[in-house]
Nucleic acid binder design. Structure first.
Lengths: 222, 222
DNA sequence: TAGCAAATTAACCGTTTCGTACAAAGTTGT
DNA sequence: ACAACTTTGTACGAAACGGTTAATTTGCTA
């Protein structure tokens, strides 16, 4: 019937980077969908192009794999953020664009949101163990610091609103929009999650953030 | 040494309601801490005053227990919310108080927040199965609807901001403040989570919400 | 007070699940 | 050619884990 050797092992290429990338991609989906405890190593293995043995070969154990997935999730979104160019805009326009971008960016990366939710359930203990994530996040707030500095130098931004607070507010609304969509929509309906609803929320977010940053006498009453 | 009969089965009282309450309380803590998959039935049983068998006797299986915990969590916070009395206040003052209250209320109920996070990880499928939760939540937005109606009738609130949107914004910031505290503080430090930081966030939330609800020409420039 | 359903206890069971052992072989750089 | 690294495949062990069986006590009520 078949004349290939008893084992089907001939004719493969070595590709460590590709194998790891494939495992990480599958694992991220599985962890995002089921959590750390809920994800199944056998299930992850089955969905990769490789075998369970290779997961343990490269990542040690389940927690090791989860840690790498966490790093990879942060790496992906932070990298995407860095491409945003704001220096050529006025402080207000830059702030608007940053808020809008963050809202959309989070919306485009639901798996990242879910991984962060899961990590928060675990009190952030795995995040803390990662040097890489601390480095990645160090730069996450620099754009906002630059905007605030410019806004203050121009005399139009308040002094008593810190960049970290603006970041907190922007993150809260952008994150919640994805993280709590399931329960919110099941309780209150879907109207906020269609195209118009999302646009309205985003516009309000921008409006609120700008109003918060500006000195009262600089706020337009448009 | 001891003269009790060989089995320790004598001398107990029947207390169905108390036993169930005890199980639910323990289970809520465990599910909040470890998630649905992460929580262990043996661990829950060990921390109750009763036995594992009783859990299955009253709640059927793990998912049944989780569903009841979910209901109980919603019941507790929604009941607390209902005690807030707003009708005697002006629309603006009522809105301020509601926002402040929500911020503090969420802060006081971290286990509820965590249960809702977990339920969102599971896409809200268990929430959907609960008639009770739908009933509880139906009233959750009525206070805001009343405030908005009064504000519009007085001519000071905008027409293009719906109650549900205000609710969304208030919830987002109040929820995120608890849900993402672990990762946020590990990345950016603890400064926002001390007494002063929390107060500042809360004040900004109130400020932003009021500004969003009011017509532009009604916003003070204080 | 006998009977019976509800409540409770303790020990047990079968499956799932993580991780490993074992055996073998192809690939790649030096 | 050689050695280290990478990949395949299967089977399996030990512990964890969800759930059950069987027997006993309590308390209501006829």
């Amino acid at each position: 019937m078949d004349d290939k050797p008893a084992n089907g092992r001939s004719g493969w290429k070595q590709n460590p980077a590709g194998v790891q990338k494939n495992i990480l991609a599958v694992a991220m989906t599985e962890f995002a969908a089921n959590g750390l405890s809920g994800a199944r190593m056998d299930e992850i293995a089955a969905k990769t192009n490789t075998s369970k043995r290779m997961i343990y070969y490269y990542f040690g154990d389940k927690v090791g794999l989860y840690g790498r997935v966490l790093e990879e999730a942060y790496r992906q979104v932070r990298t995407g953020e860095q491409e945003l160019e704001l220096d050529h805009l006025s402080p207000v326009e830059a702030l608007k664009l940053l808020a809008e971008f963050t809202f959309d960016h989070h919306s485009r990366h639901p798996d990242f949101i879910r991984i962060v939710m899961i990590e928060n359930i675990h009190q952030g203990v795995y995040l803390e163990q990662s040097e890489l994530i601390r480095l990645l996040n160090a730069g996450a707030i620099q754009k906002l610091e630059a905007i605030c500095r410019r806004g203050r130098e121009a005399g139009i931004f308040r002094d008593d609103v810190a960049p970290i607070e603006l970041h907190w507010h922007i993150s809260a609304m952008s994150f919640f929009n994805v993280s709590n969509r399931a329960t919110f929509s099941r309780i209150f309906g879907n109207e906020l999650f269609g195209a118009e609803g999302q646009n309205s929320l985003k516009n309000h977010l921008v409006e609120m953030i700008v109003a918060l940053a500006l000195k009262p006498d600089r706020r337009s009453r448009r």
